[in-house]
Amino acid sequence: MRKKIPITILLFIIMGISACLYLYKGHRDIESETADYVVTVNELEREFTSNDSLAYIKYQDKTIELSARVTSIDKAGNGIVMSEKVFVTFKNRLPQNIISGKSLKIKGRFLGYDELLQEFKIDQSSVVH
């Protein structure tokens, strides 16, 4: 009986440490990650139109690289809209060199598709040079 108590305590300590390590993982650095997918807005639209469930499984929380034209800039929201269909927020500040109407290549984390606004959402973005 006395041998079971220390073993049980040791198992609880190991389980507690494992749970803390799992729950409190370090933050991702999307800017330094390699993009899982390099896509266009048309490809995203096509995949979400044909089968949104599979598209969510494929892209959800993945790092993607996207090239498109900047259609509007939201300085207050620290973001931009690309091709009138992709809302992009930046990791830090909105880069100063972004110009509405010009093409831009960004890399960020794909969040999903907002059916109400008919817009794709990407956050933690950075400009790819």
Rank of each mutant, 00 (worst) to 15 (best):
R2F: 15
R2D: 15
K4D: 11
K4E: 13
I7H: 03
T8H: 00
L10K: 05
L11V: 14
F12A: 14
I14G: 12
M15G: 14
Y22N: 09
Y24R: 08
K25T: 02
G26A: 12
D29F: 05
I30N: 00
E31P: 00
S32A: 14
E33K: 12
A35F: 03
A35R: 02
A35C: 08
A35E: 13
D36S: 14
D36V: 05
Y37D: 07
V38I: 12
V39E: 04
V39W: 00
V41Q: 09
L44W: 05
F48G: 03
S50M: 13
K58I: 01
Y59S: 00
K62T: 07
K62Y: 09
L66M: 09
V70M: 04
V70N: 03
S72L: 02
I73M: 10
D74K: 10
D74F: 11
N78Y: 01
N78C: 00
G79F: 07
S83V: 06
E84T: 11
V88C: 08
T89Y: 00
K91G: 02
K91C: 05
R93H: 08
R93L: 12
P95N: 11
Q96S: 12
N97M: 12
I99S: 11
G101S: 09
G101A: 11
S103R: 04
L104I: 15
L104M: 14
K105D: 08
I106S: 01
K107S: 07
K107D: 04
R109H: 03
L111H: 05
L116F: 13
L117D: 14
Q118D: 15
V127R: 06
V128P: 12
